[in-house]
């Protein structure tokens, strides 16, 4: 059970028990997965391609109503998803995309604020096709943050970015997460990214959690070697 800084036992923001999901084509993808994420905790999820990371994320986001399976999932009321593609509506300008569906009077101002937080001030009136891939991804991040979620689910959000932008985005994401304190589950293929960003790293394999390590108190080198071994990369 997760503990807060004072050592008190708190209710986890996310609780998953015995989660199973299967596709008729590929059989069981998640095979009895258990997972807890504390409020405000940043968890990175790594695992080989095809091990079910996206399937888990979609289950948490409630987007898998047509997938066969069982298990119990509890997530907070306000969940936001950053997809691997930016998924901006091509027919709405950037600011309208960011504040999509928000109806409170301060929404536009908060949208502009979020856009400047991700370094896109001045691009409010652009169409999505006029933005570069990384800029589109940042706009998508702004769209998630402006909703102040209690749980942020991100599926390889930085996959398409160059190394430099990636580093800038890491710093940005950490800063924003410290400010808004959502629980985060971030899927990545990059072990270093996981170590830099997360409080805890989970390795998924064959549809169950294979390893679950806290980042604090370990040297990055040691963690890196451990995680690569768990992923099956032996050196």
């Amino acid at each position: 059970m997760a503990t807060d800084p004072r050592g008190l036992i708190t209710e986890p923001a996310v609780r998953v028990r015995d989660l199973r999901r299967s596709f008729s084509e590929s059989g069981g993808v998640l095979n009895g997965l258990d997972l807890d994420i504390a409020a405000g905790e940043f968890v990175a999820l790594i695992g080989r391609s095809g091990t079910g990371k996206s399937t888990l994320l979609r289950a948490l986001a409630g987007l898998d109503r047509d997938v066969a399976g069982s298990g119990r999932i509890a997530v907070p009321a306000k969940v936001s998803v950053v997809f691997q593609d930016s998924r901006l509506l091509p027919w709405r300008r950037i600011l309208d995309n960011v504040v999509l569906g928000l109806r409170d009077p301060g929404a536009a101002a908060r949208g502009q604020q979020a856009l400047s937080e991700v370094g896109l001030q001045g691009r409010e009136r652009s169409w999505p096709f006029q933005l570069s891939g990384g800029e589109q991804q940042r706009a998508a991040l702004a769209r998630s943050l402006v909703r102040e979620p209690q749980l942020l689910l991100a599926d390889e959000p930085f996959g398409a970015l160059d190394a430099l932008t990636r580093i800038r985005m890491h710093a940005l994401l950490r800063k924003l997460c410290e400010a808004h304190r959502p629980a985060v589950l971030l899927v990545t293929h990059d072990v270093d990214e996981a170590i830099v960003l997360a409080d805890r790293v989970i390795v998924l394999d064959a549809g169950v959690v294979r390893a679950d390590v806290q980042v604090a108190g370990r040297s990055p080198e040691e963690l890196r070697t451990f995680l690569l071994e768990e992923l099956g990369v032996t050196r």
């Binding site: 409630g62 987007l63 936001s80 997809f83 593609d85 998924r87 509506l89 999509l100 569906g101």
Partner: peptide, 16 residues
């Protein structure tokens, strides 16, 4: 269909 999925995750109603 991915736009409908997005709409579902940001929790907007039918009319919107």
């Amino acid at each position: 269909g991915r736009y409908a999925e997005l709409a579902e995750t940001i929790g907007i109603g039918r009319r919107e």
